[in-house]
């Protein structure tokens, strides 16, 4: 069953058609990669899904509910998790507190003036940190962590509201090549375990072809190909768009 249905999504900036008529679906437990050369409209497409930018036309449905016009925080309340291309964490808080914030918000307890924030949802937070392998660092400040660790924390935060859909924008950007695969494998395992639908954009083709169940390819704002990794790899239009960029080179050796 499709968790996310995107129909004829379009967005223009001035005279530039950033995204035109894009249609796709993501099913529960499925990892769908959204790829394309620089400037293909991936990030625009992505930000329209969770309400950060408004679409010109088209519809986005999550479990049958229209997401169009909702604010990011409302989209989150429906059960959509999100990680950012450049990590966004609360720098004045510890690792555990970052996760606790998401949990408190999920349980609707953030308005409390009386309880002690750091004593709430401790076990739940630690369990989430355990899942992303960050439990040992729970008491460290987010300001001093390595970038790869912040990515893991974002993942834990994104899982706090028990999402049925996870949107990951460039989850491995800025990480060392070795770490990238590890992080994506972690995300893929978590998603399959909990039957979460995942949509992610990614530059690293090794990561994409190793972990995605299905791939959609954007070029100049249009969806040019869709299918399983081997189908996309062989797709003539994809070869046309990517050939010579060298991005596929590593994949043939993978």
């Amino acid at each position: 069953m499709s968790v996310l249905k995107v129909r004829n999504l379009s967005k223009a900036y001035g005279g530039v058609q950033a995204v035109s008529n894009v249609t796709f679906e993501v099913a529960a437990g499925e990892l769908l990669a959204l790829i394309g050369p620089n400037g293909a409209g991936k990030t625009t497409c992505f930000n329209m899904l969770n309400g950060q930018i408004a679409a010109d036309s088209g519809s986005v449905e999550f479990e049958g509910r229209a997401l169009t016009g909702l604010k990011p925080r409302q989209v989150w309340r429906l059960g959509v998790g999100r990680t950012f291309q450049i990590t966004a964490t609360f720098a004045s808080m510890t690792v555990r507190e970052n996760v606790q914030m998401a949990l408190l918000s999920h349980h609707g307890r953030l308005g409390s003036l009386a309880s002690i924030a750091t004593r709430a949802c401790v076990d739940e937070a630690e369990a989430l940190l355990e899942r992303v392998g960050m439990r040992a660092q729970a008491d460290r400040s987010c300001a001093v962590l390595a970038y790869g660790d912040l990515k893991r924390i974002e993942l834990a935060v994104a899982l706090a509201n028990e999402p049925r859909l996870l949107l990951m924008d460039e989850p491995t950007a800025g990480m060392a090549p070795k770490e990238r695969n590890a992080l994506m494998r972690l995300a893929a395992d978590l998603a399959r375990d909990s039957n979460i639908a995942v949509l992610f954009t990614e530059h690293d083709m090794d990561v994409v072809f190793a972990h995605a169940d299905r791939i959609i390819v954007l070029a100049a704002g249009e969806l040019i190909a869709e299918g399983r990794p081997d189908e996309v790899r062989a797709h003539p239009k994809v070869r046309e768009v990517y050939l010579g960029s060298g991005a596929m080179y590593g994949a043939t050796h993978a």
Binding site: N50, K71, P72, R73, W76, R77, R82, F84, A88, T89, F90, A91, S92, M93, E97, Q100, M101, A102, L104, S105, H106, R109, L110, G111, S112, L113, A114, S115, I116, A117, T118, A120, V157, A160, N161
Partner: peptide, 27 residues
């Protein structure tokens, strides 16, 4: 005391990263 409560933490969260705060449902 309020600063140690979830309200105070949510306030700091909004200051630290409005983007992330919004993305985890904080107005």
């Amino acid at each position: 005391r309020i600063l140690y409560a979830p309200f105070g933490y949510a306030l700091r969260a909004g200051r630290d990263s409005p983007l992330r705060a919004d993305a985890i449902g904080i107005d």
